[in-house]
Nucleic acid binder design. Structure first.
Length: 581
RNA sequence: GCGCUCGUAGCUCAGUGGAUAGAGCAGAGGACUUCUAAUCCUAAGGUCGCAGGUUCGAAUCCUGCCGGGCGCGCCA
């Protein structure tokens, strides 16, 4: 595997070398501040940034750096108050194309090698259907898992299923009292389980006797009663089938092997609390065992606790989360732990991380990060309800998107066989939903609008899929052997070719940026810009009808590289890139 | 009350120290004997919530306000 050095890095090297010649030693080693520019290929702002420290006018510094730059590598001119406009020779860009098009993995390196990253995402609840509330964590988490893994990290996916809690007493008791109900072996149809849950809930709320029996059943479950546990296991297995069906449909990497639900940590809860007690980290308050934090207070000004053991002796989710983080550090040996969880739980994670730090589990060489995302809102700007009937099921949403995709594609498609058409319809519909979620800033509230989501114009998944298809369709029409031509680095670059080449060169930088910020929408923005650059190229640079064989060969390389970059980028977002559309 | 978060074009959003703040959608006009027009081009559209401050330079950093959302003891 060969990493290809990006043109931007070559420019940075050239500017740094020039800085070393004309600036005092203490300033010469600084960041050359090279950025993409509207006025040239790149620009450097060092002269403006360092003028004060260097006690020289910025224009003078810019001119000195420009004069010192190796003119064979980069041509530099000064502009405005002290900008340095940097342009690379055509041959340099063609060389990059030639290297990348023949490289494994597009010449992208694996800078995260050696890191073990645990990613906690999706976390649906057993015996309930997945709804829009699970959309963002599942899709964002999966994209991050793919991207970090691509960059060389050892990714450990963790699906923290909601597979434990008092609601199972209610559910199991209800099943026990209604043995005739058909909920087993539904083969991934969780709606019967969901109906069961709602029926049990209704009776729990209305029937005091049943509520008492349900509470007894909770005790039986927690104390390991064999018959109760057996039903519980069946419930979990049945739900996991349903989740897997949905993950498969969504193109999400999660499998049962990644499941590590709340119940996984039951055995460790007592030990975790004991350890915290022994360390003097928890104190008793109103009968509960709590951790307090000076900077976290409630409306009355009193400090708010993280309750690790309830006054009734039971363990809550805080204990589970503490046992979980301890396990991920001690046993999974994580160097970075990502919790892709709703932003509303920010304070909870602050407390959990702070506690883990006090306990000595979370050290400076491990990074625990809450990766928050905004609330899912309806088109009217109000949140989706979770408990009263207004919840949209995830499967319904996907059906709607795929249905719309089918309508549009059916009237456009030429010569797609029925099974291929159906595959394309699924890829477009599912991709539309995922792209809509991923392409907006993660931390903001997310307006969920089916019409916008499945609209196939503008900055959408289908636009990118279509751009990819246009690269494939040119390549499919090439005469025999034409795809194998080497890049001729002596040809002049058309402006659209130059813009495309520069965009292609940004891919590695973009991925590193996403790995750093954990914001997949930056990759979406990059791919959209790349697709537009390709479309410009497509409009103004004929490939099959190029003027010479050499020119055609170079443009074929651009098509191939663009196609592979788009397909790779979409794949890293968890979106399919069909060959035809 | 405290904390977190958001406020950018009619709408949905990019843009976290650089040049004239950008896309998409909607609306206006134009381009198909297609390497797939699911596309492209043109024009129009903004007191970057407000006010100070830091800086050669602020949508971006700091402070204070205004407005919205969310969170704050035994649910997860």
């Amino acid at each position: 595997m060969t990493d290809v050095v990006a043109t931007k890095n070559l420019v940075e090297t050239a500017v740094s070398a020039a800085m070393a010649q004309v600036l005092p030693a203490e300033l010469a080693g600084g960041d050359p501040l090279v950025r993409r520019s509207e006025h040239a290929d790149f620009q450097s702002n060092v002269a403006l940034a360092l003028a004060k420290q260097a006690k020289r006018p910025p224009r003078e510094i810019a001119q000195a750096v420009a004069d010192a730059i190796d003119a064979h590598a980069v041509s530099a001119t000064t502009s405005g108050p002290g900008f340095l406009n940097l342009t690379v020779p055509d041959a340099t860009l063609w060389e990059r194309i030639g290297e990348r098009v023949n490289a494994d993995r597009l010449g992208i390196g694996t800078p995260l090698t050696g890191e073990r990253m645990v990613i906690d995402y999706s976390a649906p609840n057993i015996a309930k259907e997945m709804h829009v509330g699970h959309l963002r964590t599942t899709i964002i988490g999966d994209a991050l898992a793919r991207i970090l893994g691509f960059l060389g990290a050892d990714v450990v996916r963790q699906n923290h299923l909601g597979d434990w809690g008092t609601q199972f007493g209610m559910l199991i008791q209800y099943i026990d009292e209604h043995p005739e109900l058909p909920w087993r072996h539904q083969g991934g149809d969780v709606s019967t389980l969901d109906a069961l849950y709602r029926a049990a809930r209704a009776q729990f709320d209305a029937d005091l006797g049943f509520a008492d029996r349900a509470r007894s059943r909770v005790v039986a479950l927690q104390s390991g009663d064999a018959a109760t546990l057996a039903v519980w296991r069946e419930l979990v297995a049945e739900s996991e089938l349903a989740f897997q069906a949905l993950y498969d449909r969504l193109g999400v990497l999660l499998t049962p092997a990644d499941s590590a639900g709340e119940s996984t940590y039951n055995l460790f809860l007592a030990d975790v609390v004991e350890e915290l007690v022994a360390a003097g980290i928890v104190v008793e308050s109103d009968g509960a065992l709590c951790v307090f934090f000076d900077d976290i207070t409630g409306p009355d000004g009193d400090r708010v606790p993280l309750i690790v053991r309830k006054s009734d002796g039971g363990f809550g989710y805080a204990a589970t989360d503490l046992a979980t983080i301890r396990y991920r550090i001690r046993d999974l040996k994580a160097t970075r732990i990502l919790y892709v969880v709703d932003a509303r739980q920010a304070m909870h994670f602050r407390m959990v991380f702070a506690t883990a730090r006090r306990a000595g589990w979370l050290t400076d060489d491990v990074h625990a990060v809450h990766v928050p995302f905004g609330t899912v809102l309806a088109a009217d700007g109000r949140p989706f309800k979770t408990r009263s009937g207004g919840t949209v099921r995830l499967s319904e949403l996907l059906d709607a998107a795929v249905g719309r995709a089918r309508d549009v594609i059916s009237e456009k498609a030429h010569g797609l066989a029925p099974d291929e058409l159906e595959h394309v319809v699924q890829a477009a519909g599912i991709g539309a939903v995922k792209y809509a979620d991923l392409s907006t800033s993660r931390t903001k509230d997310y307006t969920f609008d089916v019409d916008r989501m499945v609209s196939f114009t503008g900055n959408t998944g289908v636009y990118l899929q279509y751009a990819h298809v246009r690269t494939r369709s040119i390549l499919a029409k090439l005469p025999e052997g034409a795809a194998l031509a080497a890049v001729d680095t002596t040809l002049p670059l058309h402006p659209a070719e130059r813009a495309l080449a520069l965009a292609l060169d940004d891919f590695a930088d973009t991925l590193a940026d996403v790995a750093d910020t954990l914001e997949p929408h930056r990759l979406c923005g990059y791919l959209f810009a790349l697709a537009k650059a390709y479309t410009d190229f497509f409009e103004s640079c004929p490939v099959l009808r190029a003027e010479t064989a050499a020119q055609r060969g170079n443009r074929v390389a651009l098509c191939r590289l663009t196609g592979r970059t788009l397909a790779t980028g979409l794949h890293l977002l968890g979106i399919e890139a069909p060959q035809r559309l």
